[in-house]
């Protein structure tokens, strides 16, 4: 196996230079380093890094897309919830209104009925009062007649002579007034 002459000093003693400072090897090392490093640089630049960068970008886009979609869906569900709550509130309000209306109507009807009944009762009451008054008047006039007859009879018996009708009427009226 061929070795650079300066490296054969290993066996002979101190003559060999320290390998990293052995200038005889520099040309080969630089040549292969340049070749390998330029190959690596080109492979990384043109193939590997665009590919890995593409994978990472793709993932980021996918994640941000998913997040945007999730946000949009959340917005939709929020809207749906808001619409549902609005409908619920509307329905409640309408139910309240209908209940109020019905209650008012029924109260009005009840009032009307009550008023009509009251009026009827009042009329009946007035009629009854009138009847009572008429009956009373009639009764009173009857009382007066009876009293006058009785008075005339009593006085006729006492004094044997019938008093005049006018005097008896006046006396009865005078007594009834007390």
């Amino acid at each position: 196996m061929a070795t650079t002459t300066a490296q054969t000093g290993q066996s002979t003693g101190a003559a060999a230079p320290f390998p990293p400072f052995n200038a005889d090897t520099f040309a080969s090392q630089l040549f292969w380093l340049a070749l390998c490093f330029i190959f690596l640089l080109v492979m990384m630049w043109k193939v590997a890094l665009p590919r890995i960068g593409g994978i990472i970008d793709n993932r980021l886009q996918r994640i941000s897309g998913d997040l945007a979609e999730a946000a949009a869906l959340k917005g939709q569900s929020d809207d749906a919830i808001a619409a549902y709550e609005k409908a619920l509130a509307d329905a409640r309000a309408r139910a309240q209104a209908i209940a109020n209306e019905t209650r008012d109507k029924q109260a009005a009807e009840a009032d009307l009925t009550r008023k009509r009944l009251e009026d009827e009762l009042n009329v009946k009451l007035a009629d009854a009062e009138k009847t009572i008054a008429a009956t009373k008047t009639a009764a009173m006039s009857n009382v007066r007649g009876i009293a006058a007859d009785a008075t005339k009879a009593i006085v006729e018996r006492l004094i044997g002579k019938a008093p005049s009708d006018s005097a008896v009427d006046a006396a009865v009226a005078d007594t009834l007034k007390r």
């Binding site: 090897t25 080969s28 090392q29 292969w32 380093l33 390998c36 990384m44």
Partner: peptide
């Protein structure tokens, strides 16, 4: 002289391995 050395072999190995 430009020779294929042990250093060159390991350079090729490193670069090939990375790629």
């Amino acid at each position: 002289d430009i020779a294929f050395t042990n250093s060159a072999a390991f350079m090729v190995l490193a670069v090939g391995g990375i790629t």
